[in-house]
């Protein structure tokens, strides 16, 4: 447990020390909301979810990339692969949740007729999905530029695809749009249930994939056999 909490703490310190990144992380989702707010207040909330997911998954991807160099040393120092990915994901979940709070407050104040409980659920799911998705992207794609492009494509498809289509449902951040519809348009609970199920399934799926990729990447190679010291 100490190892996991140490990784989480150090990940948090790294992110907090990158002031420019932190500033952008905090402000990045704001234009998504403000640019649509006047004419399409409901769409502004859906775009806000996408902006939050983009910001958090982008940060997670950079955390994964910056950890790549030090990971072999940490693995040899006694950490297991799950300490590394779970510790980083915990830190990102915590920071991501903190980032969403002012936006939740903004929407609550700005749009009183929306179902605010559902908004909070959608934002929590945005964080829950975006952190493992970004870490997975960083673990699979070794170069930051390629990873950034992939993230851009994912978010772009998510924004332009009709939410009712299969393509949109296969995207990682679909849950926000579905729950958003429930919260904004006061539709039936089916939207909420589908959105929550999609979000939880994505969070679980990405976490499992991350566990597998991390274990493979940081596995001890078969030619090495370690025995206790004499």
């Amino acid at each position: 447990m100490r190892r996991l909490s140490t990784i989480a703490e150090m990940t948090g310190r790294e992110i907090l020390r990158r002031r420019a990144v932190l500033f952008l992380l905090l402000l990045f989702p704001l234009p998504f909301y403000l640019l649509q707010r006047a004419e399409h207040p409901g769409q502004a909330i859906r775009f806000l979810f996408v902006g939050l997911s983009w910001a958090i998954s982008g940060s997670a991807m950079f955390v994964a990339h910056s950890g790549r160099a030090i990971d072999p040393r940490l693995r040899l120092s006694g950490y297991r692969a799950h300490h590394l990915w779970m510790g980083r994901m915990s830190a990102l979940w915590l920071i991501g949740t903190v980032v969403t709070l002012p936006y939740l407050a903004l929407v609550v104040v700005d749009q009183p007729r929306v179902r605010h409980g559902a908004l909070a659920v959608a934002m929590v799911l945005c964080v829950a999905v975006a952190a493992p998705f970004g870490l997975l992207l960083g673990a699979v794609v070794s170069r930051e530029f390629e990873g950034t492009l992939l993230l851009l494509v994912t978010v772009g498809i998510q924004m332009v695809a009709d939410p009712a289509t299969t393509t949109a449902r296969l995207m990682p951040f679909w849950s926000g749009r579905e729950i958003g519809t429930y919260a904004i348009d006061h539709t039936d609970t089916g939207f909420l249930v589908r959105g929550v199920a999609h979000g939880l399934a994505c969070a679980l799926l990405f976490s499992l994939a991350l566990a597998v990729v991390s274990a493979l990447r940081l596995r001890r190679r078969r030619h090495l056999r370690t025995l206790p010291a004499n």
Binding site: A69, R73, L76, G78, R220, H223, L224, T226, P228, N230
Partner: peptide, 25 residues
């Protein structure tokens, strides 16, 4: 150190390993 695969041979280490890479650690 066991962080890169060998195509042949084996390594036996008795005890713990401290590995200092050439930068980046």
């Amino acid at each position: 150190a066991g962080v890169e695969r060998a195509h042949a041979g084996r390594v036996v280490v008795r005890g713990s390993i401290g590995y200092c890479p050439q930068g980046g650690g």
